[in-house]
Simulated scan of single mutants.
Amino acid sequence: MNARIYRPSRTATQSGQARSKNWVLEFPPEFAPQIDPLMGWTGTRDTRRQVRLWFGTQAEAMAYAEKNGIPFLLEEPKPTSRKILSYSDNFKSTRLGQWTH
């Protein structure tokens, strides 16, 4: 199975870019989850699924995978655009909707 190298997107609840500039190498699941008959908990024999490696650049992640013989798929990040707004934009005369309290 191929490992996945990607750059995670920022969380939807935060506007900051923390943890979204690094690259991640993670492994896909090899075994299906199993339900423990006694307790009913879900578990797996797959320990590689728990491993998530963080790298500063895409080249570092690719070099690590190639050095250790790990086949990988590279996912390029989607470009993001931010619309910068200020508080005064709420009171513009060219605003489409009327501002009310």
Score class of each variant (00 low, 15 high):
D89P: 00
Q34E: 14
R49E: 08
K78G: 10
P8Q: 02
A12K: 14
T47Q: 15
I5R: 00
I35H: 04
P71D: 01
W54M: 07
T11H: 14
Q17W: 15
T94K: 04
R49T: 04
K92A: 11
Y64E: 01
P28Q: 04
L85I: 12
P8A: 01
R82M: 07
R95E: 10
W23C: 04
L38M: 12
S88N: 10
R82P: 04
T42W: 15
M39L: 09
K78T: 13
R7W: 03
P29L: 03
T94W: 05
D89C: 05
L85A: 05
G16D: 14
N2L: 06
E66F: 07
G56C: 08
T44V: 07
P77N: 02
I84R: 13
D36P: 05
I5D: 00
Q58S: 09
P29K: 10
Y64G: 04
R7N: 09
N2A: 06
L73K: 12
K21C: 05
S9M: 10
L73Q: 09
A12S: 15
D89G: 00
F31S: 11
I5C: 00
E75Q: 08
M62R: 09
I84Y: 09
G16S: 13
L85T: 11
G56L: 12
N68S: 14
E66D: 15
I70V: 08
N90Y: 11
E66L: 10
T13C: 07
Q14V: 08
M62L: 08
R49W: 04
A32H: 05
S93E: 14
A65S: 03
T94P: 00
Q98W: 12
L73R: 13
A63H: 03
F31Q: 10
S9V: 12
P77A: 03
F91A: 06
T57R: 08
E60H: 12
R49H: 12
L25A: 00
T47Y: 13
T100V: 15
G56W: 06
R52D: 06
K78Q: 15
N2T: 13
R49N: 03
R48P: 01
P37E: 03
R82T: 08
P71Y: 03
K21L: 07
T57Y: 10
Y64V: 00
W41H: 05
M1Q: 02
F31V: 12
V24Q: 01
S15H: 10
R52Q: 14
N68Q: 09
A32W: 03
E26V: 02
E75C: 14
W23I: 04
G97K: 15
G69T: 05
A59D: 15
R7D: 03
L25D: 01
E75M: 12
M39I: 11
V51N: 11
Y6T: 03
A59L: 14
P77M: 03
F72S: 01
G43Q: 11
W99T: 12
